[in-house]
C-alpha cells in the first residue's frame, strides 16, 4: 500500500505518495528530479548518495522515504544554492579534487558535515570523515588537500573578522 509523506527538501515542503520500498535517494532522484544525489552501490558502501537528514549526514540509499516523513532533507542542490559550500567547491576545483565527479557530491556532503563540527581537522580526521566515501579517480590526496585548504581559509577569515 502506498503511503503519503510530507517532508521538507531544501527548504521547500514536499508532499509525495510512495511505495514503502522507495528509498529516500529514489524519491529525490525520480520524483523530485534532484539527481545530484548519486546512486553507486545502493548498500551504504560508496557514499555517493549522502544527504543531510535533520542536520546529520546519512546515506539516502539506506533511508526509506517513509522513514523521512516529517523530516528535513538537504541535498547537494540545496547546499549549492545556499552558498554554504562555495569555498569547498572552489578548493575542490583549485586542487583538482575531482576527475569524473561521480563521488564529488558525497565528498562535499561529508566535508560540509565534518567542518560543521570541527573547524580545524587534522588530515587524519579528514581521512576518517571520508572513510565511507569511495573515489576511484583521484587517490584521495587532492580531496584531503581541498578540505584542509577550505578549513584553513575559514579559520583565517574568522581570525580576520576578530
Amino acid at each position: 500500500m502506498k503511503a503519503d509523506i510530507t517532508l521538507t527538501v531544501n527548504g521547500e515542503a514536499v508532499r509525495e505518495t510512495v511505495e514503502p520500498r522507495t528509498s529516500l535517494a529514489d524519491l529525490l532522484r525520480d520524483n523530485l528530479r534532484l539527481t545530484g544525489t548519486h546512486l553507486g552501490c545502493e548498500m551504504g558502501a560508496c557514499g555517493a548518495c549522502l544527504v543531510m537528514l535533520d542536520g546529520v549526514a546519512v546515506h539516502a540509499c539506506l533511508v526509506l522515504a517513509v522513514q523521512a516523513d516529517g523530516q528535513k532533507v538537504e541535498t547537494i542542490e540545496g547546499l549549492n544554492d545556499s552558498g554554504l559550500i562555495k569555498d569547498l567547491q572552489e578548493t575542490f576545483h583549485d586542487r583538482n579534487a575531482l576527475q569524473c565527479g561521480f563521488c564529488t557530491n558525497g565528498m562535499l556532503m561529508s566535508a560540509y558535515a565534518l567542518l560543521a563540527g570541527n573547524s580545524d581537522p587534522s588530515r587524519d580526521e579528514i581521512r576518517d570523515a571520508l572513510s565511507g566515501n569511495y573515489c576511484r579517480c583521484t587517490g584521495y590526496e587532492a580531496i584531503v588537500d581541498a578540505i584542509s585548504a577550505a578549513a584553513d581559509h575559514r579559520l583565517n577569515k574568522a581570525k580576520g573578522a576578530q
Binding site: 549526514a57 546515506h59 561529508s110 565534518l114 565511507g132
Partner: peptide, 12 residues
Amino acid sequence: APFVAHPAIRNR
C-alpha cells in the same frame, strides 16, 4: 564506536 563503519552510518 570509532571502529564501527563510517560517520554517516554511525549517524543512523
